[in-house]
Nucleic acid binder design. Sequence first.
DNA 1: AATAAACGCCGATGATTATTCGGTAAACGG
DNA 2: CCGTTTACCGAATAATCATCGGCGTTTATT
Lengths: 166, 166
Amino acid sequence: MTRRHHVDETDLRILKRLQLDARLSNVRLAEDVHLSPSACLERVKTLEKDGLIRRYLADFDLPKICSFVMLMVEVILENHREADFDRFLAAIRKREEVLECLKIGGRIDYLMRVICRDIDHYNELSDFMSRGDLGVEKFHGHVVLATDKAFEGYPLDLLIEPRGQP
Amino acid sequence: MTRRHHVDETDLRILKRLQLDARLSNVRLAEDVHLSPSACLERVKTLEKDGLIRRYLADFDLPKICSFVMLMVEVILENHREADFDRFLAAIRKREEVLECLKIGGRIDYLMRVICRDIDHYNELSDFMSRGDLGVEKFHGHVVLATDKAFEGYPLDLLIEPRGQP
DNA sequence: AATAAACGCCGATGATTATTCGGTAAACGG
DNA sequence: CCGTTTACCGAATAATCATCGGCGTTTATT
């Protein structure tokens, strides 16, 4: 099982705060979670070392930086042996256009988020997907027309708070 | 159009670097992009002010923090008038379980990433989706079994580099 | 119950960093 | 050609980081 690290109330406050602003200075973070800077820093480092905090990343408004086309691509493989999944994933991991790849339960196998410069670029990726050695039976790309709600962090309160009745 | 800010080579280096590690100190960032700390800081602040950098967020290994169920939910609305979209979006924006909502081209209208504590919790959200006043014709949730490739930043080089032939 | 070990915290410290402030040089525009 | 803008640098100060020893509480052990 995962979860060797027990997340207490203070850890949770730290996580929630860093999820809102990862560049917060340790001093202000410490204030917000009611700890001394040294104690706070120690906790953050532990959270990082134990891998609960994986990394800190900058969130871009990509349309302001460059033009692109984003797609959600459903993938169905020809066969479902372990080797078939591995082969597909190994290939997909090398393509930077594939931002993420989710294994899905249901009639499709994978759902991928893909980003390309333009339709020509996607067409090229599309050809790649069709190559026989990938084991893809069929795939279907949905163009993302708009992001009507963007990811802004996990609702930790909602996920954790109601933990059993004492 | 968006893009009033012209992103030059140096800006691009800054963005790429911050995308890898948002908590990088300004001094080290300046070294990496071959600028003085003051010049570098000024550029970063401009990038933030112009909104190219939206925010800095901590990336969690959520399974190490709590248990949950993630789903991708396809949504089809009954009608496609502007008011129908607005009504639906207003409702789902209030639900913290909906991490993001993408407007999709094709036979479905929206694709939502949803996170719940457990199946009971999703069942409850499911009931919410079925309420008549949301205008949802039908929806279909796919459980996310695994994240085989996780988002780790945009491939800026791939998106920007080949900009026209001089 | 007593002791020991471990834990988490605090506050003080020197080292590091952030941020501001002139000042300079190149690019731009009339 | 000259004033304006832009982007940069380097130095100085204010703020922060990050380490350390020490303290009190909890936990485990005997």
